[in-house]
């Protein structure tokens, strides 16, 4: 088997990948416009706003209106990127997204920074862990959660080319940057990171790196894990997932999200209907987060390499 290794080229935050992608879009696509709700700096829209002041609009602390304005802009051919913390551009404005964006099929890109528990010290009010579920329940909505800086930048650029509503989720802390700088991002196409035969680990977002670390741990015990990066949760790459479990016969899902509504449930549903195999979730089970550093929280809530490796062994044992 081909041995694959991934090198962290230096920690970077995924939100900066978004900012870099947006700036590049600003330079290459005149239709791209951006809106922020008083968190322009936090969501890394500063550079775009500075270079393209006529195409940046401040909505203030009024997210519901921002979503609607985005929808109106999209009608006339603009490609609006509306951004805030994930908590405030999903749950807070669910009905606006539902009616003005998803049901109306407007070409709005909902860009959600500071997603998940790794938002850290601000605590549970800001740590949304149900956003993937909320967004994937909506017809017409594409849901993307890239794994590192490079992939977030590539995804940001790719979604401008896709016509329709997109939810793009990324995070706050610096995390390993390990995917290729010049990658082409294909919406809906899972990326096999390592090839393995004993267990499939389906990971999204920050947990892709953790899954690669888990695969290394497993390898030292003689277990061969196939890590697949599910950067697009909707539409789910059913073919890639089924092909992998047909080979390995066991599955683990890993995500920075609640079990309820998450990627894991989407995969479990797919497997139950097509290819039932032992499966374990690595996700948060029905409890809110709390303050702490991102690393401390990942460990405490069972979202790190150690927990993924344990889940893999558990799934394999149930074969």
């Amino acid at each position: 088997m081909e041995k694959q290794s991934f090198t962290n080229t230096g920690n970077k935050d995924t939100r900066s990948g978004f900012g870099a992608g947006l700036l590049e879009l600003g330079r290459t696509n005149e239709s791209v416009v951006a809106l922020a709700a008083d968190l322009k700096g936090s969501v890394k829209m500063d550079a775009f706003a500075k270079e393209f002041p006529d195409r940046f609009f401040q909505a203030g602390i009024a997210e519901a209106n921002m979503i609607g304005v985005g929808a109106g802009l999209a009608l006339s051919g603009k490609i609006p990127f509306v951004a805030s913390f994930a908590a405030f551009v999903t749950g807070r404005v669910y009905d606006q997204i539902r009616q003005s964006v998803a049901y109306s099929e407007t070409n709005v890109k909902i860009c959600a920074s500071h997603a998940g528990i790794t938002l850290g010290e601000d605590g549970a009010t800001h740590q949304i862990l149900e956003d993937i579920g909320l967004m994937r329940m909506l017809p017409h909505m594409v849901v993307i959660n890239p794994c590192d800086y490079n992939q977030t930048k590539a995804a940001t650029i790719a979604i401008a080319e896709y016509r329709g509503p997109v939810y793009l989720r990324f995070g706050r802390p610096g995390v390993p940057n390990f995917t290729p700088e010049d990658q082409k991002f294909e919406i809906g196409k899972a990326v096999r990171m390592t090839e393995g035969k004993d267990v499939s680990i389906f990971a999204t977002g920050h947990l892709v790196w953790e899954s690669l670390m888990a695969a290394q741990q497993l390898e030292s015990k003689g277990i061969s894990a196939e890590v697949i990066n599910i950067h697009t949760i909707k539409p789910l790459d059913k073919k890639a997932i089924l092909e992998s479990v047909i080979k390995t016969g066991a599955a683990v899902s890993a995500e920075e999200h609640f079990i309820a509504g998450g990627m894991g449930e989407a995969i479990a549903g797919l497997l139950a209907l097509n290819r039932p195999v032992p499966m374990e979730y690595v996700a948060i089970d029905d409890k809110f987060g709390q303050s702490g550093t991102p690393a401390r929280l990942m460990k405490a809530y069972g979202l790190d390499a150690q927990h993924i490796a344990e889940a893999a062994e558990k799934a394999i044992a149930r074969k």
Partner: peptide, 13 residues
Amino acid sequence: GQGLSVACGAAIA
């Protein structure tokens, strides 16, 4: 309550 926001976006566009 959503139409005025959408109209704002259309006006900017």
